[in-house]
């Protein structure tokens, strides 16, 4: 922990970054995101297994950008988010410093996209064993039961859009659900309209989702949203050999094509 405090203090004192975004103690037993701007407060940073938030979500917020250059306490999903944002021209080389806590208690500081790419090649975003079991179970159901399963899940959706707020790749300044001409997503909270929202969210992240699972963790009613994204990413990896968040210069899988793309379903 002290290595993290020292690194954060050093960055703030030298002026290399104006804010260190990490985790701090929450009001109960959990951890919460913490923005440190005063070097004297670097000691409030914590890093342990409770620190699951994907902090890359803050990088593009105007309020955070206004603070100046940011340093992030990063984990593999954070790194992949940063690379994907770079691939989508949302971050430039040098916009962000990443502090990577190491298993031995040290902290590695990474800045260039090339270094970040080297750091993520080892770490992959995988579903947890429980999530994988849930995905396989749902995928193996007969279609009618799969429909019923998801309708029951979507019935609980409150349309709070926490999934959108928690996602580092959901950065549109105006989202399709905030538009009412045309009204693509029905306003009344019925399961079909809720499904429309979740299909839109998943499709707009298709080929871009880095699989951090922040959407599902943010969901107050525990809908396993990330499974929708995961199914899409696995299809894209299998069909088009493309994976999000591994390179700062990757092209977007759905804005390109090959003449040999699967077309067995087309007459």
């Amino acid at each position: 922990m002290s290595a993290l405090h020292d690194a954060a203090r050093g960055i703030l004192e030298s002026g290399a970054a104006a804010v260190v975004i990490g985790h701090g103690e929450g009001t109960a037993t959990g951890a919460r995101p913490l923005f440190v701007r005063d070097p004297a407060k670097a000691g409030e940073l914590v890093f342990d297994e409770r620190c699951v938030h994907n902090l890359a979500v803050y990088l593009l917020k105007p309020e955070v950008k206004a603070l100046g250059r940011a340093a992030l306490v990063g984990q593999p999903p954070t790194l992949r988010s940063v690379l994907q944002l770079a691939a989508e021209q949302q971050l430039k080389e040098g916009d962000v410093i990443l502090l990577l806590p190491e298993p031995d208690g040290g902290v590695r500081q990474v800045e260039s996209f090339a270094d970040i790419e080297r750091a993520v090649s080892e770490a992959d975003a995988q579903l947890s064993p429980e999530e994988r079991a849930c995905l396989d179970e749902v995928a193996a159901l007969p279609r009618e039961e799969r429909w019923r399963f998801w309708q029951q899940e979507f019935t609980r959706c409150l349309k709070c859009y926490a999934c959108r707020a928690a996602c580092p790749l959901c950065y549109c300044t105006q989202c399709i659900v905030d538009v009412n001409q045309p009204q693509w997503i029905p306003v009344p909270p019925h399961p079909l309209g809720n499904m429309d929202w979740h299909v839109v969210r998943a499709m707009h992240l298709a080929g871009r989702c880095i699989g951090c699972g922040a959407c599902a963790r943010a969901c107050p009613v525990d809908i396993p949203l990330n499974l929708l994204n995961q199914v899409i990413e696995e299809e894209i990896a299998g069909q088009f050999d493309a994976r999000a968040g591994l390179s700062a210069s990757a092209s977007y899988a759905l804005s390109t094509f090959t003449t040999g793309d699967k077309d067995t379903f087309i007459r």
């Binding site: 799969r146 429909w147 998801w150 299909v199 899409i232 069909q239 759905l254 804005s255 094509f257 379903f265």
Partner: peptide, 21 residues
């Protein structure tokens, strides 16, 4: 049409997963 084809591959997969016929 080739861009659309890619999108349909993905969209069909997603619809099938959420149980649309």
């Amino acid at each position: 049409n080739l861009h659309a084809r890619r999108r349909w591959v993905v969209f069909r997969k997603l619809l099938d997963f959420v149980g649309v016929d």
